[in-house]
């Protein structure tokens, strides 16, 4: 194999297309990671079952579409509610008993992920399932050299909307003040009448709901399989770790990682791009283990 077989020479139009694909990858990684970021940032819980919450979102969409004939757009809020309720149930029954025991939480949520995979396998079988996206999203925007698939654009916009909504709740509502106070200093927050356990429950449910919506959107991109969650969880964790467990950090890290992945793929191939990306992340974390943006609240 010659170098030219491995290395794609630079060509402006293709490179700009790769940048758009990078943005698309970033939006997918970000939407997969945002729930994880919120749950880890608020509660310090590393939820190993996050990928399976994404999978549940995808399968819930499939069920709503196939058996209840609910249109895709209406599925999104319904999936959010359904997976949130499931998240609330998990928090109340499992996570709550394991606060301040990170290793136990890790193990318990990993066990939960296996149960969910097997449960879905038992109910739906191993054959792939599909989420159908509305016809009006099956378009392609061609801007000269740029070719933007409609559904990818939709995911970018949906991600932006979810991030904006999450930011608005966190920084523009009294509920957000409560959550940020619990994140920064739970003892002091409770001395103002804030029930930390309630905040944790609702935050976990919200994070789970976001994972569900991510699953619904991913269902439009790929086939549904019981173990599909594991395909997203690695990237989601990378985004959270590189970002520093803050929402803003996750936004930056997903854009940087998505673009790097796409650019390396453009010049080489997907496999080598992953190798370079993971190597760069290891080097980055060696020098900045706290991630891009550190904990936003400082105790005085």
């Amino acid at each position: 194999m010659s170098v030219t077989d491995f290395w794609t020479p630079f060509e402006l139009n293709s490179f700009l297309n790769a940048l758009f694909i990078g943005l698309s990858i970033a939006s997918i990684w970000l939407i997969a990671a945002v729930g994880l970021t919120i749950i880890y940032g608020t509660m310090g819980v590393i939820n190993m079952a996050h990928g399976e919450l994404i999978m549940l979102g995808a399968y819930t969409t499939y069920v709503l579409q196939t058996f209840f004939y609910i249109p895709f757009l209406l599925c999104l809020p319904l999936v959010f509610v359904i997976v949130s309720i499931f998240g609330l149930f998990i928090e109340r029954t499992i996570i709550r008993r394991l606060y301040n025991r990170p290793l136990d939480t890790l193990l318990a949520t990993w066990g939960l992920s296996l149960i969910l995979i097997q449960g879905v396998r038992v109910i739906f079988g191993t054959a792939p399932k599909y989420v159908s996206i509305p016809g009006w999203l099956n378009f392609q925007v061609s801007l000269g050299f740029l070719h933007l698939p409609g559904f990818r654009l939709f995911i970018i916009l949906a991600t932006a909307a979810l991030i904006f909504g999450t930011w608005y709740i966190a920084y523009r509502t009294t509920w957000g003040i409560r959550v940020r106070a619990v994140m920064a200093d739970p003892d002091m927050a409770s001395s103002f009448g804030i029930d930390s356990n309630r905040i944790y429950s609702i935050t976990f449910a919200y994070g789970a709901g976001l994972a569900g919506v991510a699953g619904a959107l991913f269902g439009g991109l790929k086939t549904l399989l019981p173990d599909m969650g594991s395909g997203y969880i690695v990237e989601a964790f990378l985004v959270v770790v590189v970002g520093g467990t803050q929402l803003l950090g996750s936004i930056f890290s997903s854009i940087i990682l998505g673009e790097l992945a796409s650019i390396f793929s453009y010049f080489t191939n997907d496999t080598f791009a992953r190798f370079v990306l993971f190597t760069l992340i290891v080097i980055f974390l060696r020098f900045r283990p706290q991630g891009l943006i550190t904990e936003g609240m400082k105790r005085r």
Binding site: I177, R180, A181, A184, M188, M297, K298, R299, R300
Partner: peptide
């Protein structure tokens, strides 16, 4: 009002 105040500095 705790010792050391424990104000939320970023708020």
């Amino acid at each position: 009002v705790p010792q050391g105040r424990r104000i939320f500095g970023k708020f």
